[in-house]
């Protein structure tokens, strides 16, 4: 190990492996990035109402939509057990009709993700999930914030992010 002549080829083998692994990982990262960009649409868990307005989808295709439940939009009926509300992302709104049990976190101003299909202009949901936002605080703090008027109800919970930017 200590002889001078052996030292040199060993160094080159080491750096060769280093370069090989480096290049391999670089190409792999590039390939994955390309695949991710190509499959952007299938990786997205839900579309926002604005997405649907821009690119119309097949009416029979099952999709998920997400956004905030618009304030004052929740009502029941006219059909048996029907719950109607509008989902908004600030830009566009979409009326939703749903028959079933709502999650505990469901309320006006709350982020939701609904699964179903577009029937005409209305989204007919067969599953509604609540989307929780990333804010954690004790109830007293939330109350104080509301009193001081610093409250943004679920402002970031389900708004559409611009992907890849």
């Amino acid at each position: 190990m200590t002889q001078k002549p052996r030292q040199k080829p060993k160094m080159t083998r080491k750096s060769k492996r280093l370069i090989l692994i480096g290049c391999g990982l670089g190409f792999l990262g590039l390939a994955v990035a390309l695949v991710m960009t190509a499959f952007e649409d299938s990786v997205v868990f839900f579309y926002s109402p604005s997405d649907l307005a821009v690119k119309p989808t097949d009416p029979d295709r099952r999709i998920r939509i997400g956004g905030l439940v618009e304030d004052g939009s929740v009502s029941t009926g006219p059909g048996e057990g029907e719950i109607r509300f509008r989902v908004t992302d600030g830009g566009a709104t979409l009326p939703v009709v749903y028959v079933g049990i709502l999650p505990d976190l469901f309320r006006e101003g709350q982020g939701v993700v609904a699964q179903g299909a577009l029937v005409g202009e209305t989204f007919k949901a067969d599953e509604v999930l609540a989307k929780h936002d990333e804010t954690y605080m004790p109830p007293e703090v939330a109350k104080a914030l509301k009193e001081q008027g610093h409250w943004q109800d679920g402002a970031e919970g389900a708004t559409r992010k611009v992907p890849g930017s």
Partner: peptide, 25 residues
């Protein structure tokens, strides 16, 4: 959670504009 719409919420602690989690938590 930043690149795509996910059901899982975005990061609360390791984020650019500071944590979104109360001090006592």
């Amino acid at each position: 959670v930043d690149w795509w719409n996910t059901l899982h919420q975005p990061a609360s602690v390791l984020r650019m504009d500071g944590p979104k989690i109360a001090g006592e938590m």
